[in-house]
Amino acid sequence: MRYSQEGMATTESKNTAGPGAQFQGQQGFVYLPLIAGWLVPGAGHFLLHKWGRGLLLAASIVGMFAVGVALEGQLHTSAHDMLDVLGMVGDLGSGLLYVVARIAGWGADQVQTTTADYGTRFIVVAGLLNVIAAVDAHNLRTGRKS
């Protein structure tokens, strides 16, 4: 028996012609919403004309990243040990936000205060949330979710 609640996003049968099936017949690169959503928060949903969801996702992810930078959180720039690798993977989840922040020199090189440590977590979690949002856009594109 599968666990599910009312309104819960579930994997639907391929034969079910639910609302999520509207993109199944579309031609084009099926991974485009996934890649676009990773590079720019919310872009995957915008491509699928889910304007409200995309706007809320973009505001949340960019907002969390911005708060992290404002708290002088650290952007992971090297991968010397395992924790650095994990932090960098999380940061890279933000896509172009991470690249722009690196180019602009935002964020601290080293964590100096407690709130800066919080900022570092905000930046990492923003990246992880962006990955979740990009996968959600992919699921919408393939019809797994409506």
Binding site: G7, A9, I61, L129, I132, A133
Partner: peptide, 14 residues
């Protein structure tokens, strides 16, 4: 607030 918003949009349909 931010995490809940993303969870809600990605984990539910309606």
């Amino acid at each position: 607030l931010f995490a809940s918003t993303v969870f809600a949009i990605t984990q539910r349909n309606t």
